[in-house]
Design a protein around this nucleic acid. Structure first.
Lengths: 249, 249
DNA sequence: AACCAGACTTGATTCGTATCAAGGAAAGGT
DNA sequence: ACCTTTCCTTGATACGAATCAAGTCTGGTT
């Protein structure tokens, strides 16, 4: 889960065209001069240590952030309830889309390991988008992609068993790593069992038990947070399998 | 759930400034001439009868739709599984935001009663948004509001009991009706128990049982699909209540 | 190197909700 | 108004996952 760390340019200017994530990031498809205007609004806050907050629930919403390296989790605190993990963010993914148009941030976002981000002050991004139709399109696309992801998540949370949730979760991570040029079969989980459980609506003990069972069934090999997928077809079959009357047919 | 039916202008031009939903619709905040340009791109398809599809899963994405009157549900069909209801749409709400930037529509959207919609061809909307920064802002706001709603839903689906899901669901509807000028205490459910169950990740029998129990506890009165909320504070308390270790504290 | 705190595993038990099953009520069509 | 279909309610039972409870492992700290 650790991309090559980005160079911090001495002039504090991010060079998107040289970034390893260029192909999967917000400014995708911008012409070179547009890219330069885009890069000019980027700020690079100091790197976050494991456990540090990038935004806190209730903070004034000002910026979007793109993960350059490392990973983060979003957690929502609700009235009298335990925190709930709502998103994990990997390199190239955008933090804060759910805060647009609101005065305050919806949840807290915290680094799960050493993490570098690019900060995009939203006002300036909006101004830029006024001139760059490609950028406008990209913002729309990113938001609607997230809407679809959330809906997939809702489908997962209602109606699927613990096994299927874990299978889908691992396949989802696998796919995201593949897309970023990492091995889709072997990767590091930067989140705890408890985070996974919270995200998937399961008790952490259940997460642990299911992973153990998957290992016994030779679907995966788990060594602490190192995960190896041994039988991806079986995982896919499991994730798609219908069960019972309510959740499938 | 039935707003005054909109007049179909004989010249087929929608007059947003006269629409009862104006205050809650996409063109909110547009100047009068901007509003006119906006209204010019609106198409009014023929009304949908109960059960008719507005879009089918896999259709080419071309337009957003705003509900003028009536109500719809979105349902997603997945590989070998039963359909899952992912959204209900009331007057003033926008259908199709999750299709932006995709070639095809994510789920099917079907009328739950006689329903009128305004169609907004997305290409033309985009062109218009290029000139109208207010409109751009509104589109962003609508999308990010939906992101937050989906996240609230994810929190509800992992970690809350059947009672709490139903309580939240009814409170959510109540609030949406209130915002539209209807009674927040007494309204018609245009969706079936089965739809509610699918949406909330519960078996339809559970929905029925919980409603019966809520009625015995004098929280609500249910007569078929007519719902009366008798004790909204108790519902709120129930919805916010923490349970156990995993879901609350 | 030893210690500590947090993270993880594993087992026993309980509980909520799905499932199966069947009867009753409402709604739509002719 | 009748019939048919779908929707809804209610009961009995089964099962998956949460909870409670130890104990083990791990990484970070001094």
């Amino acid at each position: 889960m650790s991309l090559e760390l980005p160079r911090c340019q001495s002039d504090n200017t991010t060079r998107c065209e040289r970034c390893a994530l260029h192909a999967r990031c917000l400014p995708l498809g911008l012409e070179l001069d547009a890219l330069e205007s885009f890069a000019a609004i980027i700020r690079n806050p100091r790197p976050l240590k494991r456990g540090e907050a990038l935004v806190r629930q209730g903070d004034t919403f000002e910026s979007l952030f793109v993960v350059r390296s490392g990973s983060l989790k979003q957690a929502v605190t609700q009235e009298g309830q335990r925190d709930q993990v709502t998103h994990f963010y990997l390199p190239g993914e955008i933090v804060g889309l759910d805060g647009i148009g609101e005065a305050h941030c919806y949840g807290s976002v915290m680094a799960m390991e050493s993490t570098f981000v690019c900060e995009l002050p939203f006002r300036r991004l909006e101004d830029l988008a006024e001139q760059l139709s490609e950028l406008r399109g990209q913002i729309y696309r990113c938001m609607s992609r997230e809407l679809r992801n959330d809906q997939r998540m809702m489908c997962l949370l209602s109606g699927r068993t613990a096994d299927q949730r874990l299978a889908s979760f691992m396949l989802g991570l696998s796919e995201r790593f593949r897309a970023r040029g990492f091995s889709p079969y072997r990767f590091h989980l930067s989140m705890s069992r408890s985070d996974i459980g919270s995200y998937l609506g399961l008790a952490l003990e259940t997460v642990s038990r299911v992973l153990t069972r998957f290992q016994q069934q030779s679907l995966v090999t788990v060594a602490g947070r190192e995960l190896t997928i041994n039988d991806i077809e079986a995982l896919v079959a499991l994730a798609e399998e219908g069960i019972g009357r309510h959740s499938g047919g």
